[in-house]
Amino acid sequence: MITVYSWPTPNGHKVHIMLEECGLPYEVVPVDIGAGEQFAPEFLQISPNNKIPAIVDTDGPDGKPVSLFESGAILLYLAGKTGKLLPKTDRQRYAVLQWLMFQMGGVGPMLGQTHHFRVYAPEKVEYAINRYTNETRRLYGVMDRQLADHAYIAGRSYSIADIAIFPWLRSWQNQGIDWAEFPQLKTWFDRIAARPAVQRGVAVLADRRKPITDDKAREALFGATQYQRR
């Protein structure tokens, strides 16, 4: 059995979707990041970076329990465990991995900063809003051009690269995006959103998500608590 410690964020949704696509049995333990539950000592034992998601698999590679943090690493682990959504040939596998790294190093961090400065920052910093909104639009353009010649992000087949990227684009309005500028990407987005496993994955814990409006949640997510040594 796999236990996933998570919250309904893009990184959490990645793993929920992957588990659904692979058909693996799992249970979810909510980690309310607005309430500071990510700093609990027991959670830090499996996720020392105090970020969701993390998993514990009682049936690890050697038959013993294994825990993992970092959503990209978890996607790779689940792909290896099931033999699904990561190609077997070197050429195709590396094509997927480069786009997975594109999400981990570009789409996630940059769109995350766009959300922060456009929606959550206590003051509107025009330079930051423009910088990250423009970078977000650039990344959307990279994906739109890729999808002009490919059915999926990494080629002809649906893969962990698509699973990693999709949840980050669900908040396109908050990112200042006009889909009319990215028609190929919009077609891909709608195709992924229609998958039953994706719909089940983004529904996980969806009823627990609340707008970040109170000072306690802002402090837990963006304040000094994040930077305390543990």
Rank of each mutant, 00 (worst) to 15 (best):
R230Y: 06
H13L: 05
L205N: 06
S157M: 04
F182P: 00
D149V: 12
P122L: 07
R208V: 01
G72A: 14
D144I: 12
R138N: 10
W168E: 01
P167T: 09
T3F: 01
R137C: 01
M101K: 02
P211K: 05
K14V: 04
Y94A: 05
D144H: 13
W179G: 03
G201P: 10
T187N: 12
P30V: 05
L147F: 03
F43G: 06
T225V: 07
E20M: 10
L97E: 06
S157Q: 14
E27G: 14
A220L: 04
Q146K: 15
E21H: 11
M1Q: 06
F39K: 13
F43D: 03
L24R: 12
R131Q: 11
L68V: 02
W179L: 14
I129C: 08
N134A: 13
R170E: 02
H16V: 04
M1A: 05
H150Q: 14
L185K: 03
F182E: 00
T58F: 03
I165W: 00
I153L: 15
N134M: 05
R131A: 07
L78N: 09
A206N: 05
A220Q: 15
A79H: 03
E126A: 15
D57I: 04
S6M: 03
Y227K: 15
L86D: 02
G106S: 12
I129A: 01
R209H: 07
V107R: 11
E123C: 03
L85E: 02
L86M: 13
A40D: 14
R208S: 05
I74L: 12
H150I: 06
S6Q: 04
N174L: 07
N174H: 11
M104K: 07
A193Q: 12
V125D: 04
T225M: 12
A148E: 15
I17Q: 12
P65R: 05
A193G: 11
K64A: 14
D90R: 15
R200G: 01
T133M: 03
R91E: 10
A35K: 15
P183A: 08
P211V: 04
G112V: 01
R137W: 01
S47F: 09
G105K: 09
R138A: 10
G108P: 11
D32S: 14
T136W: 00
A161M: 03
F69H: 10
Y77S: 08
I165R: 00
P48D: 07
F39W: 11
S6E: 01
T9K: 01
K64V: 05
V202K: 02
Y26L: 10
L78G: 09
P53Y: 03
L205C: 12
W188T: 06
G201L: 09
I17S: 11
P25M: 09
P109D: 06
A79P: 01
N174Y: 01
F182V: 04
K186G: 00
V28A: 09
E219C: 09
N49Y: 09
S171T: 15
S159A: 08
R170F: 00
A197V: 10
G60D: 04
H150S: 15
R118N: 15
N50V: 04
F117E: 00
A128P: 00
W168C: 03
A121L: 09
Q146W: 11
N49F: 12
E126R: 14
G80S: 13
A73I: 11
Y26T: 08
K64T: 11
G12I: 06
G72V: 10
E126V: 14
G60R: 07
G36Y: 04
